[in-house]
Each structure stands twice: as structure tokens, then as C-alpha cells.
């Protein structure tokens, strides 16, 4: 147990800060994926036309290759990628892409493809009558989307959103292969220098298992609060 202690005697603090990095990476990546996914869903809503096709191509690419490959692509080539994207509009930048940035960008872009599909189909599954009722009542577009459609779409998408969160959280482990000092990387260092790999990898494993196991019931509870009154009261 003293191996996991904080301070000089153990690797507790290293693991703790590694875990913080892991969570930060997951949260940033997820927020980026959610924002992009929402934009994609709304733009590609119609299910035909050029915007829909562009999204299909995007989704096919980013869901068709491993996240690890995208992480490497952004880590190795991200600086040049940004430079060549910005050069035509007259901006010249020199930047270094850190493993963290590469990881957030890669996970965000990959999972935006999954979330875009998920959110789009959730919006489509909001009953037509809800749109029609808003139309008939002259509710302004903005309020129709923000107060009627998206809250209901969110409820429909919730299980998928949670599932994607857990999958993305696990994928953060891959960013350690690009040199990020996250939980896994620190566990690996500790394992190497103490020759006690079993303890450290088990600790890292438990971190992920606990988060994944706790998330689902937690979200279910929140969801039930959100759904208050929406299911017909059983008589």
C-alpha cells in the first residue's frame, strides 16, 4: 500500500495528477465533440443535399480509422496542418502541438462524428407534432429549438451520450502513447521504477472501472429527475 502513498515514499501524487490530466483530457475532448456534433447534426438535419453529404464523408473518415491514428496525425503533423490551413488567409504561425492538444483535437473530432449522428437522429425522433404545435402557436424559431426540440432530443439521446462519454474516457488512454503524462503513463513509470507493475496497473484499471460504473446510475438518476411527470403515472 505504501507504494500508492502520497509524497516521496509512494507514487500516489503522481497517479493523482495523472488522473486529473486524464479527466481534463476527457472533459475537453467531450465538450469539443458535443459542440461540433450539435453543429453537424443541425447542418446535416435534412438528410440530403451537399451539407448532408459533407457530413457523411467526414463521419466515414473519422469513424473509419482508429482514434490512435488520428492522435498521431495531429501530434506529428498538427503544427504543419494548422500552418497550411492558416497560410492562405495570411496568418503565419509557428506552434508546437502538445500531446494534450493533439489528444483533445483528435478525440473531439472523432467523437463529433459519432455524436453528430446520435444527436441528428434524436432530433429526427422528436415527434413532428411538436414542431407543428410551435408553428401553429407562432413560437419564434429560436425558442422552438431551445425550449421544445433540443430538450426533448437531449432526453432521447441521453443513453447514447453517456455511452459515448465512457468510450471516449477509455480512449484517452491512447494519448499516453503520444507522450502525454496522464494516469497510464505515470502508472507505467511507477511500474518500471518499482518493479511492481501489477499494483499500479490495477490501480489505473480501477480508476476507469469505477468512473464507468458510477456514471451510469448517476446519469439514470438525473434522467429520472428530468423526466419527472413525463411518464404516465401508474395507477
Amino acid at each position: 500500500m505504501e507504494l500508492l502513498a502520497f509524497g516521496d515514499t509512494g507514487y500516489g501524487d503522481e497517479l493523482f495528477f495523472g488522473a486529473l490530466t486524464t479527466i481534463q483530457l476527457a472533459v475537453f475532448g467531450y465538450v469539443l465533440a458535443l459542440a461540433l456534433g450539435l453543429v453537424f447534426a443541425v447542418l446535416a438535419l435534412k438528410g440530403k443535399g451537399p451539407r448532408w453529404w459533407l457530413f457523411r464523408v467526414y463521419a466515414s473518415i473519422f469513424t473509419g480509422v482508429p482514434s490512435l491514428l488520428i492522435i498521431f496525425l495531429f501530434y506529428f503533423g498538427g503544427a504543419e496542418l494548422v500552418r497550411s490551413l492558416l497560410a492562405p488567409i495570411g496568418i503565419n504561425v509557428r506552434l508546437d502541438v502538445s500531446p494534450f492538444t493533439a489528444g483533445v483535437a483528435a478525440l473531439g473530432l472523432v467523437y463529433a462524428a459519432y455524436l453528430g449522428d446520435l444527436i441528428r437522429s434524436a432530433i429526427i425522433n422528436v415527434p413532428r407534432g411538436q414542431f407543428e404545435a410551435c408553428e401553429a402557436l407562432s413560437v419564434p424559431r429560436r425558442h422552438m429549438w431551445l425550449s421544445v426540440v433540443l430538450p426533448q432530443a437531449f432526453r432521447i439521446a441521453l443513453p447514447g451520450l453517456v455511452n459515448t462519454w465512457i468510450v471516449l474516457l477509455k480512449d484517452t488512454a491512447l494519448v499516453s502513447l503520444a507522450g502525454l503524462n496522464d494516469l497510464i503513463a505515470n502508472a507505467k513509470v511507477a511500474a518500471g521504477s518499482t518493479k511492481e507493475p501489477f499494483v499500479f496497473f490495477t490501480a489505473a484499471l480501477l480508476f476507469f472501472v469505477v468512473i464507468a460504473t458510477v456514471t451510469l446510475p448517476l446519469v439514470n438518476r438525473v434522467a429520472r429527475r428530468l423526466e419527472r411527470g413525463q411518464r404516465r403515472a401508474e395507477v
Binding site: L174, P197, F201, L205, V209, V210, A212
Partner: peptide
């Protein structure tokens, strides 16, 4: 299910490849 699905495969891999050798 909790363990096998909740853990990243990379950690499972380290655990089996490096960790078990310790036992």
C-alpha cells in the same frame, strides 16, 4: 462486465503483459 468493459484495453494489455509477470 464492469471490469472488462470499463477498463481501456491498453490497461488490460499492460496488466497482462507486464503486470502478471510479477505474480
Amino acid at each position: 462486465v464492469s471490469v472488462c468493459r470499463g477498463a481501456p484495453s491498453l490497461i488490460l494489455l499492460y496488466l497482462i503483459y507486464n503486470g502478471l509477470a510479477q505474480l
